[in-house]
C-alpha cells in the first residue's frame, strides 16, 4: 500500500530478472540461432542430394572424373583445386578468429589487418568457385544423351576418355541450322545447337575402331561400364538423340542432370553465403577503420560477423565431403 511499484519479492532470485544465464549478449545469441536455422537449410539441401544419390546409386557421376581441372595447368588433377579452395577458406577463418582475438585486446591495427586478409581470402574463394562453375558449364569431353535421358560417354580401348572433337566425322552438308528470330517466325528461336549432330558422332564411331561407349552404370569394381564395339554402335544408332557438351539445368555431359542441378544449387547457395559474408566483412572492416568499435569500447560486432564467417567455412567442409569426396 505504501508504494506504487509492485514488488514481487523475487529480486535477486533466478527468475527475478536481470540475469544472463547464457552469459552471451543478445546479438551473439541471435547469431547462433540464425546459424542453427541456416545449418538446417543446408542440411536440407545436402540430405536431398543424398536422397537423389541413393535413388541412382548405381549410376551417379564419379566426382573425381568431373572436377579434374586446375587453372593454368593442362591434364587431369582430381581434387587438387578444391583442396586449395578448402584451404583458402580455412585460412580466412583463421585470420577472422585472429581478428576477433585482436578485438578482445582492443588492438585496432591488428583487427584491421586481419579483417583485410579475411576479405581477400573470401574473394579468392568466390573467384575460384566462379571458375569451377565456368569449367563445369563448359564441359570437357562431350557425350550423347539417349531417349531415356541416360548419358553415353566415349573411351578408347584402355579406358581413357575420348572427346567428341577427336573422332567425330564432320558432315559438310549439314542442313540443320540454329532457328533464330530473324530466320523464320519472328517469335520462335532456339538455343545454340551442339557442335556435332548425333549422326556425325555415329559416323565417327564407325570410322574409329578403338572408340567405345561408356554408360552411366557403375560396375562391381566401382568403374563405369564400357560396352563392346557392336553394342556401342547399336546404342548410339538406336538410342542417341542429343549431343551434350557441358552442363546446365537440363542436360549434363557428366551423367544424371540431377547432379548438375544439385551442384549449381548447393555450391551456388554456399557461394552466395560467402559473397554476403564478404560484403558484411567489408562493412565491418570500414567500421573498424573509422573507429566505431573503438568508441563503443567493444569489438563484439567483429565477433558476430566472425561467427557467420566460420559458419560459411563449416558448411563448405560438408559440401566438400559430400560433393567431392564421398
Amino acid at each position: 500500500m505504501d508504494n506504487t511499484v509492485v514488488s514481487t519479492g523475487t529480486e535477486g532470485k533466478t527468475w527475478g530478472g536481470g540475469n544472463k544465464p547464457l552469459k552471451a549478449s543478445y546479438g551473439k545469441m541471435m547469431m547462433w540461432f540464425f546459424i542453427v536455422s541456416d545449418a538446417l537449410t543446408f542440411s536440407g539441401f545436402l540430405a536431398a542430394y543424398g536422397f537423389s544419390r541413393f535413388k541412382f546409386i548405381d549410376s551417379w557421376p564419379i566426382a573425381d572424373e568431373v572436377f579434374t581441372h586446375v587453372p593454368f595447368f593442362h591434364g587431369t588433377y582430381p581434387m587438387i583445386y578444391v583442396a586449395f579452395m578448402t584451404f583458402v577458406l580455412i585460412m580466412s577463418s583463421v585470420t577472422m578468429v585472429l581478428a576477433v582475438d585482436a578485438g578482445h585486446k582492443m588492438n585496432k591495427a591488428k583487427v584491421t589487418f586481419y579483417m583485410f586478409l579475411t576479405i581477400i581470402g573470401g574473394l579468392i574463394f568466390v573467384g575460384s568457385q566462379a571458375w569451377e562453375w565456368a569449367t563445369f558449364i563448359k564441359g570437357d569431353y562431350g557425350a550423347v544423351q539417349t531417349k531415356g535421358g541416360n548419358i553415353l560417354q566415349f573411351v578408347d580401348t584402355d579406358g581413357n576418355r575420348v572427346a567428341l572433337r577427336d573422332f567425330a566425322v564432320i558432315d559438310d552438308h549439314k542442313e540443320r541450322v540454329q532457328d533464330e528470330r530473324k530466320s523464320g517466325l519472328w517469335f520462335t528461336s532456339e538455343g545454340t545447337l551442339p557442335t556435332y549432330t548425333v549422326s556425325e558422332i555415329y559416323d565417327g564411331l564407325e570410322a574409329n575402331k578403338d572408340v567405345l561407349v561408356r554408360t552411366q552404370i557403375i560396375n562391381d569394381e566401382g568403374h563405369k561400364t564400357v560396352l563392346s564395339r557392336e553394342e556401342s554402335l547399336r546404342q548410339i544408332k538406336e538410342n542417341g538423340t542429343l549431343v551434350v557438351e557441358g552442363a546446365n539445368l537440363h542436360v549434363n555431359e557428366y551423367g544424371s542432370p540431377l547432379f548438375a542441378d544439385f551442384f549449381f544449387f548447393i555450391t551456388g547457395f554456399h557461394g552466395f553465403h560467402v559473397f554476403s559474408g564478404v560484403v558484411i566483412n567489408i562493412i565491418i572492416f570500414f567500421n573498424v577503420i573509422i573507429g566505431t568499435y573503438e568508441r563503443r569500447k567493444s569489438y563484439e560486432m567483429v565477433e558476430k560477423v566472425g561467427l557467420y564467417w566460420h559458419f560459411v567455412d563449416l558448411v563448405w567442409v560438408f559440401v566438400f565431403t559430400f560433393f567431392y569426396l564421398v
Binding site: P21, L22, A24, S93, V94, M96, E303, F311, D313, L314
Partner: peptide
C-alpha cells in the same frame, strides 16, 4: 574444431552449447 575453437563454443556456457 571449427565450432569449438574458431566459433568459441568451448568458451560458451553448457546451456547455450547444448541448445545449439
Amino acid at each position: 574444431y571449427i565450432t569449438w575453437d574458431f566459433m568459441h563454443m568451448r568458451d560458451e556456457t553448457k546451456s547455450l552449447r547444448r541448445m545449439v
